[in-house]
């Protein structure tokens, strides 16, 4: 069905707009290709569809009323309005970046404090084990650190028992 003449004829058949001459051509064509008859039937079927309902009689006045309605300025719309402000997205983004930055800095600060505490504790341990010359007694420090895992598991609140450490160091 690639013949443009036939296609055009089918369009006219579907639309139900055949001239007398075209009707003759169509009849001859249908004799050769009986399946084409379905096009006419389909065109008829589509033209006989139930018509959509009529629009309301006050349709036009409703449209005009809608046009002339003053812009809505109620409070509900008012407070939502600022969400549509173009700078809102940028402000939200900047606030999010600032919040993330603050959290990262806070985290770093806490880690630094933790590190300071650890260093101070470790320095205390070393000075307790080798009060005079820590570098001269590395084996004593190593002996203490062997128990590192056990010490690490001690509750944070438990104060360092420097007396015990000194006793261990002297052994």
């Amino acid at each position: 069905m690639k013949n443009p003449d036939i296609e055009e004829l089918i369009d006219k058949v579907m639309a139900g707009r055949l001239t007398a001459e075209e009707e003759r051509r169509w009849a001859a064509l249908v004799l050769q290709q009986p399946d084409l008859e379905e096009n006419m039937a389909l065109g008829e079927a589509l033209r006989n569809l139930s018509p959509p309902p009529e629009v309301s009689s006050n349709f036009t006045s409703r449209v005009l009323e809608e046009l002339n309605r003053p812009a809505r300025t109620d409070r509900a719309d008012g407070w939502l309005e600022w969400l549509r402000w173009p700078g809102f997205a940028r402000l939200t983004g900047a606030a999010a970046v600032l919040a993330v930055g603050f959290i990262v800095l806070q985290n770093q600060h806490q880690r630094r404090e933790q590190m300071d505490k650890t260093v101070r504790t470790f320095a205390g341990v070393v000075s307790a084990v080798a009060p005079n010359q820590p570098s001269a007694q590395p084996e004593a420090v190593v002996a203490v650190l062997k128990d590192f895992e056990a010490i690490r598991r001690l509750p944070d609140s438990a104060p360092v028992d420097y007396g015990l450490l000194a006793a261990l160091g002297s052994n």
């Binding site: 379905e38 389909l42 079927a45």
Partner: peptide, 13 residues
């Protein structure tokens, strides 16, 4: 159109 003809074939005939 082809889809409609296919679906409505028994009625169009």
């Amino acid at each position: 159109r082809e889809a409609l003809k296919q679906r409505l074939k028994p009625y169009l005939k």
